[in-house]
């Protein structure tokens, strides 16, 4: 069994109904689980940009990439696992937070440059952005307080400098 590593695949696709299903089917057929998925309009409205995080072995990944590139609606699909790219993620944490814990929670949030987006008697909702590893670290820090709800956008990425994101 080959080692599973985390891949971030970016795709430029036609902005049409059904394209997401076609892309998802390529992953599903080989049992390649999708960890996160972001779809948004690309700079031209005819196209959409997809960022997909998935975990699996190298051989299957190469097959999946080739199969994605074979789709007529996919302009291109590229894995960025070993590249230095700009990557960001946004997360909202709703944390159990009685008044006596508030200072402590806010101090930790400050360290992560988190923002308070909602606050009440029992809860506080914080927004954190950054690399996925930073969001993971914040998750660990908030766990002891009791995370009531968590939502993450999934990773988005862009290549550095003048180079266009493939």
């Amino acid at each position: 069994m080959e080692k599973s590593i985390k891949h971030t695949i970016s795709l430029l696709v036609s902005n049409k109904p059904g394209v997401l299903t076609r892309v998802a089917l390529v992953f599903a057929r080989r049992g390649f689980n999708i960890d996160s998925l972001v779809v948004s309009k690309a700079q031209s409205p005819e196209f959409s940009r997809m960022n997909i995080e998935a975990t699996g072995d190298e051989k299957t990944l190469n097959l999946v990439l080739a199969q994605l590139n074979r789709l007529v609606d996919v302009i291109h699909a590229v894995d960025h696992a070993n590249e230095d790219v700009i990557q960001r993620e946004l997360a909202l944490f709703k944390v159990s937070c009685p008044p006596e814990k508030r200072t402590e929670v806010l101090q930790i949030a400050e360290t992560f440059r988190g923002q308070t987006v909602d606050i009440g008697d029992e809860t506080i909702t914080l927004q954190v952005t950054g690399k996925s590893s930073k969001v993971d670290a914040f998750h660990t820090m908030m766990d002891p307080f009791g995370i009531l709800e968590l939502v993450r956008t999934g990773k988005v990425l862009m290549s550095r400098g003048k180079a266009a994101t493939a």
């Binding site: 059904g18 299903t21 076609r22 089917l25 057929r29 789709l71 007529v72 609606d73």
Partner: peptide, 11 residues
């Protein structure tokens, strides 16, 4: 039929 076709057509 479009949805059913996805895994067995070229397009």
């Amino acid at each position: 039929i479009l949805g059913m076709s996805f895994s067995s057509v070229k397009h």
